[in-house]
Amino acid sequence: MTLLSVQNLRVTFETENGPVEAVRGVSFSLGRERLGIVGESGSGKTMTGRALLRLIRPPGRIEADAMIFDGQDLMQASERQMRGLRGRRIAMVMQDPKFSLNPVMTVGAQLTEGLRQRDRLGWDDARKRALAALEAVQIRDADRVMAAYPHELSGGMGQRVMIAMMLIPEPDLLIADEPTSALDVTVQAEVLSILDGLVRDRGMGLIFISHDLRLVARFCDRVLVMYKGRVVEELAAADLMAARHPYTRGLLNCLPRIGGARGPLPGLDRSGDWAE
């Protein structure tokens, strides 16, 4: 079943030197599965994720032939309808909890905000739901974390709070934008396994944006490879390491290997037709 279908998505920024296209005609569809989007910095993967929530601010502009989520075209939706979808049905986890949590509000206030403002729950009910959500991301002393401010949490703890906050309304689609890139390797594994379990249990669709090819190959079902705002290759995650496309091959070639040769890593060869 198709949850989301995107046709010819474009994100353009008006600058003083004329328009800059960050996303240039991306199309894909997604069921209740895990789709990875990989690419180097500036390839347009983050902008693609934000465009799905229509969260590109002026001077940025979103265009698409269609962007259909569960039967509704997001391009035609009013801002009010979008607000109803955001958080409740489509959620997003961002890269670094140091910046993505409000520094002057307690974790509890931020966790319960959606429930109280959007769903009009009372403080007690909202608090119970928030505590349950914190337990679901394996935070033991949930009471203490609720009273804490973001700067009092470690990175891994912060990211779990972020995941808990986004999953409270049980969305159908979760966009995870480099959710583990700001974390230590050991914490990364924990956060990923939590995310993995939650997505599996609740049958959500997941868009996993990352520059880490090995991670995506392990974690996702399907992978889009983006370069300069375009999808250059789409393939099953299991086949990623055997990709044919020269850009994907190039990316794979610059991965260092433990026990491999210690010479300089090869750079990307951008001489093909695809790299225009």
């Binding site: 109803g84 961002m94 409000n102 403002q117 972020m162």
Partner: peptide, 10 residues
Amino acid sequence: YITTARVKGM
């Protein structure tokens, strides 16, 4: 964190 608040539908 402003994006976060918007993502939450505020």
